[in-house]
Design a protein around this nucleic acid. Sequence first.
DNA 1: CGGGCTCCGGAAAACGTATTCCGCAGTTTG
DNA 2: CAAACTGCGGAATACGTTTTCCGGAGCCCG
Lengths: 341, 341
Amino acid sequence: MAHSSPPTLHDVAREAGVSIATASRALNGSARNVRSENASRVRAAAAKLGYEPHLSAQAIAKGSTRTVALVIRDVADPYFSSIAAGVTQAAEAAQLIVTMAVADGSPERELEIVRTLRGQRPRVIIVAGSRIEGTGTRDSLTEELAEYRTAGGRVVMISQRDLPFSTVTVDNHGGAERLARALLDAGYRRFAVFHAPAEIRTSRDRHAGFLSAVRAAGAPEPVAIETGFTRAGGHDAARRLVERGFDDVEAVFAVNDVMAIGAMTAFRDAGVVPGRDIGVAGFDDIGSAVDVVPALTSVAVPLREAGLTAMRLALSDEDSASVCLPADVVLRESTPPRPPA
Amino acid sequence: MAHSSPPTLHDVAREAGVSIATASRALNGSARNVRSENASRVRAAAAKLGYEPHLSAQAIAKGSTRTVALVIRDVADPYFSSIAAGVTQAAEAAQLIVTMAVADGSPERELEIVRTLRGQRPRVIIVAGSRIEGTGTRDSLTEELAEYRTAGGRVVMISQRDLPFSTVTVDNHGGAERLARALLDAGYRRFAVFHAPAEIRTSRDRHAGFLSAVRAAGAPEPVAIETGFTRAGGHDAARRLVERGFDDVEAVFAVNDVMAIGAMTAFRDAGVVPGRDIGVAGFDDIGSAVDVVPALTSVAVPLREAGLTAMRLALSDEDSASVCLPADVVLRESTPPRPPA
DNA sequence: CGGGCTCCGGAAAACGTATTCCGCAGTTTG
DNA sequence: CAAACTGCGGAATACGTTTTCCGGAGCCCG
């Protein structure tokens, strides 16, 4: 009794006085009919015994699972957890189970995860936020995923272009361009850009988009400060900017919101009031952008939508589609219109 | 070729020129030895073919899975995603796979999830954030989980006391008491409390803890305002407080940080400057508490730790342990010391 | 030199389910 | 009325793995 094992289909069949074949057919909508009297007896027996079909056994018998594997960099990061929320929502709507693995930003770990993931034989593998480029593991990862796909699996990458799989990306370049134009329209001309190392594709795209719009407008070349892709990185960059003297910069663009928020705190600590002494803009439009003071100008990225779209692509027929989601500028008090000089 | 199925143990055995039994023994550390020459040939064959064992087949053969099922209310909420981060970290350290299901705050959905989860035959089910009380589904949920446990599964609840399972809770009552004492020490005596409906246990505990310390100090009974457990709820409560006239309250305690942050924004919009005209304190110490202006006084809750602890309990031997994690007061600028009147 | 032992490989059973195939009854059709 | 057909239940097989059991080979010891 202490460790009675859960009831099996066999138990249900015996309880209902039919064969396991009939029980199986009655419980999952099989192609074949069973007499309605038998069917209801089977259902009654299943309910009485609290039977739940053993998913592993079903998987092995059917030759396919109902699993979606999601690989992300960090669950606690709002960026990724929003994506995860979209993926799970879409998966649950399709009666799929999602398993989650976190790669912690390490390409090696990511590779290892994908490898062992194949053991699950999931329907779909979704990889989000593998944004580190130039490492040797990239090719191994591609190969591993390609092998998985020829075995009938589906692969979707989120925010990782240039790989031969279905992809959903965000219009980082265009969003940054539009942000730059909006800031130029508001009267800013001299910028600093806080960006992450170039291996991080997202950072590179946003930086490039911003630059191209600034240059197209004939404004002076922005000051570029390289730092970490994190809140601490933004904080640090702001401190460095203040130290070196920033009289010539009117606004800062940080390539993501947490960096921008870190920068605002650092500015304020240095006596430079964001929104008054200097404009600050970020990217992602995370929830707390509105609660910070002054509210942060940003570019809204439909993260949850990205997760939903990834599942949609995975479930669609076409094998290597790509979707690019729009990113919309949201102007707030951190970049007030600037009186013409 | 287009849909070649992945290699099986059979293929590996054939490639290595041994039986599947030997191949199986060579690949997973079985109790039995295989001659080292054979072992290395099997490993070579497995590597060459890119073999990964079929986890479902292993599960069914071994009679147990390496799966941890996590039920949470919402992945995108930082509160839950931090817990999830702790759980996944501990699970991956133990070579376990975590599957995630989100209940969206609906007890019915939660029940349904747990039911179908049993089909996975996971080692462990962790339920976080089922904080709605008084609904009829509660008993069904308990029953379902109890049944799962007699079948050999392990159950851990997070932040849900009073159920006959292992539990990890946060010291909401004590943390709120200590917060109240800290505020009293800082010179505040007249409080308002923004709390959620009493069905939400967490809110009730924090409210009660705060009240008990205030009363013990002989300070006047706080004004209580009931509202939603969300940012919008806090915003709304602050607006109501301002409308009714708040001259007699010196500080507000909101039962969580997002409420407190919403309240700060509402106060500011009404021309009441938080930290100067009124003190504001929250609970949870979410990441953005330090980036808000003024930085928010709060009570730090070790959420990731809670996830880790849950896994530790799940993997431990004792069947119904309980752990209560400490919650530490963090004073910041939103509640500056108040000059004695 | 023979009996018992250890070491190890392979055949086969087992796990829980889906499905194919067979056969039986009842019904339709020519 | 025979023949073909339909509807449905059950036995058996398959899925990919682990594990038990059997048996052969080599060894040690008396």
